[in-house]
């Protein structure tokens, strides 16, 4: 029993990682109505920028905020330079561009910073705050940061003009255009914000998994799972989904005989099951398509 509790808390700590990235996935989904397969690589690249800034002697929080700003600009530029010219292309072509971006960013990071893992500092420390090292200070800090981001996003999308305009631009571009919203600009803004949130996620995750070019590849997948389970239209749901995936994955290792070996498969099967029962995720709104 004690071990189960331990694994649940351990799962929550890993879940915080997934929740962080799931949040940025939902963010970009709100803004562009797409899942961005290069999201994880963008976050990884941002984290390297932060690392490089600190390497050049910048203090942690300075590097933190400058990286967020740089990432915002990079996200904005990627949308303008890469997606704007093909915004009329079919969705499947967009996905191919995501795949291309993935390949480019991943190989550029390896080319610039090599593949040797790099330690990444944490502002929260690594002391245990719960039980015998079950939840580290960094884990708690990561959960707190995710919560704060979630709060800000909620307020932003609910109550600011830009936030509402962004939602309108992605949910119904044609109508949005009719009421005078600059849809293209809103999309680019959404990319910028998603990149910035991704940067925060990367900076929070790197101290746990170590910084290297492939660090986000599988985390992104779990993040997708979390976002989809929670519902792609609900930032809160995505955070919940992220934590849920972390816990489910850890508990799967208790399945007798093959749990430890197959925990990824079990987690994935559960996700498919959730989707079959609740196709829009646990907290997602149903999207009605007109004929």
């Amino acid at each position: 029993m004690e071990q189960v509790v331990q694994q649940i808390i351990g799962g929550l700590a890993t879940g915080a990682i997934y929740a962080c990235i799931a949040l940025s996935i939902v963010m970009i989904y709100q803004a562009i109505d797409h899942l961005n397969f290069a999201q994880g690589e963008m976050a990884m690249f941002s984290t390297y920028i932060a690392w490089q800034l600190m390497q050049w002697g910048m203090p942690y929080w300075g590097a933190f905020f400058i990286t967020i700003a740089i990432s915002f600009v990079l996200g904005y530029v990627i949308e303008r330079a890469v997606f704007k010219p093909v915004h009329n292309a079919p969705v499947l072509s967009h996905i191919v561009i995501f795949i291309a971006l993935f390949a480019i960013i991943n190989s550029m990071a390896g080319f610039i910073w090599e593949f040797t893992i790099k330690p990444f500092p944490t502002p929260f420390g690594t002391k245990s705050v719960l039980g015998e090292g079950l939840l580290s200070a960094h884990g708690a800090g990561m959960i707190a940061v995710t919560g704060i981001m979630l709060g800000f996003l909620y307020l932003f999308f609910r109550y600011t003009r830009v936030g509402l305009a962004m939602r309108a631009a992605s949910a119904n571009p044609d109508s949005a255009r009719l009421v005078g919203i600059r849809v293209g600009f809103m999309n680019a803004l959404g990319w910028g914000m998603a990149a910035a949130i991704g940067a925060v996620a990367g900076i929070m995750i790197a101290p746990v998994v170590f910084l290297e070019p492939n660090m986000m590849v599988t985390i992104l997948l779990y993040g997708f799972a979390g976002a989809v389970v929670g519902g792609l239209t609900s930032p809160g749901g995505a955070v919940f989904g992220g934590f849920a995936v972390g816990v489910i994955e850890n508990l799967a290792s208790f399945v007798p005989h093959f749990g430890a070996e197959m925990k990824l498969s079990i987690a994935l099967a559960l996700i498919i099951l959730v989707l079959t029962l609740k196709p829009n995720g646990l907290f997602g709104r149903k999207i009605v398509n007109r004929v």
Partner: peptide
């Protein structure tokens, strides 16, 4: 594909092992 080996390490500690044989690649070893 696992992001971390945290849960494995927790389980190993809980098993009461006093000798640890670690056959993992650099990232996971660190």
């Amino acid at each position: 594909a696992d992001p971390t080996v945290d849960s494995q390490i927790i389980a190993l500690k809980a098993s009461g092992a006093d000798v640890f044989f670690n056959a993992s690649t650099p990232k996971f070893a660190a």
